[in-house]
Amino acid sequence: MNIFRLLGDLSHLLAIIILLLKIWRTRSCAGVSGKSQILFALVFTTRYLDLFTNFISMYNSAMKLIYLVCSYATVFLMYFKFKATYDSNHDTFRMEFLVVPVGGLAFLVNHDFTPLEILWTFSIYLEAVAILPQLFMISKTGEAETITSHYLFALGSYRALYIVNWVFRFYTEGFFDLIAIVAGCVQTILYCDFFYLYITKVLKGKQLTLPA
């Protein structure tokens, strides 16, 4: 565990909590992609099956449980409790366009052809692209609430911090996991356009709107 990894985890946690609180406090999930949230729940479910097979640390197990519970809570709030506020007309990205190719890739490119390893690989690849329905939704409506942009910024920063962690781990421990690194870079690149808008608009007190 190094500082970049810890900051990455905390940033991830912050993102998840920002989103949950936004939905809970405003009693609304307008502007949030339910498709992305379902994909994230799927990501955590397929990645953290090792909760049952492998104990690493209290920190590790606790964080996994928190991520899992929060992501399912978000999906529950969106599709049940506050379903009336869910903006499904603008959330039209087809999940199968991500899940099917990512599933195929996980079968073909993995470290080990075992069920748990393939599911872990699937979750790494899926996480890289799971935000696309949300970005697609913002591009359709042309804007995002400020609180939603804070959520996206924290979520994007998490993987960027992990990349620094991987560089650090490579030089200090000689550790690297090519699958995680490549997927993590793809994931971070997808956020670059958003990061630019966040820094030039949201941090200057304006709402995030896309140029016409």
Partner: peptide, 10 residues
């Protein structure tokens, strides 16, 4: 490849 030995990341 003992991958799970190294899967301490989240």
């Amino acid at each position: 490849y003992d991958s799970f030995k190294e899967k301490d990341e989240l």
